[in-house]
């Protein structure tokens, strides 16, 4: 499945500043593996050590947050648009419990 992936500013160093790229995968999980092949380092930015999407990374398939679909197992079809959107957050004390 070929999908269009929108890359946010902080990840563009990995994509040679491309804001949109084409990638493949039948699920979001497969898409992330494909992105990692094309742009090494991408998976580490998107997923934690257990392979789950990081808490402060939001991924949308078309208009839908994958957390309300099937998370990493969300299915993709040709022509889908996937948006990677880092959360906007901060705070006063150390962020230990956020991680």
């Amino acid at each position: 499945m070929s999908v269009k992936v929108r890359i946010p500013a902080p990840l563009r160093k990995l994509t040679e500043n491309k804001t949109e790229i084409e990638a493949n995968g039948k699920t979001v999980q497969e898409l992330i593996e494909n992105l990692e092949k094309k742009f090494p380092g991408m998976k580490d930015r998107l997923c934690d050590e257990t392979g789950k999407i990081r808490r402060f990374i939001n991924i949308y398939v078309n208009e839908q947050d994958i957390r309300f679909l099937e998370n990493e197992n969300t299915k993709l079809k040709d022509g889908d648009e996937v948006s990677i959107i880092p959360a906007i957050a901060g705070g006063r004390k150390d962020s230990a419990f956020l991680k």
Binding site: E63, A87, I88, A89, R92, K93
Partner: peptide, 16 residues
């Protein structure tokens, strides 16, 4: 944020 007194987190849906 679950602790809005000390932290902020923009509602991801709203952000999108």
């Amino acid at each position: 944020s679950p602790t809005p007194y000390t932290r902020y987190l923009i509602d991801p849906q709203e952000q999108f």
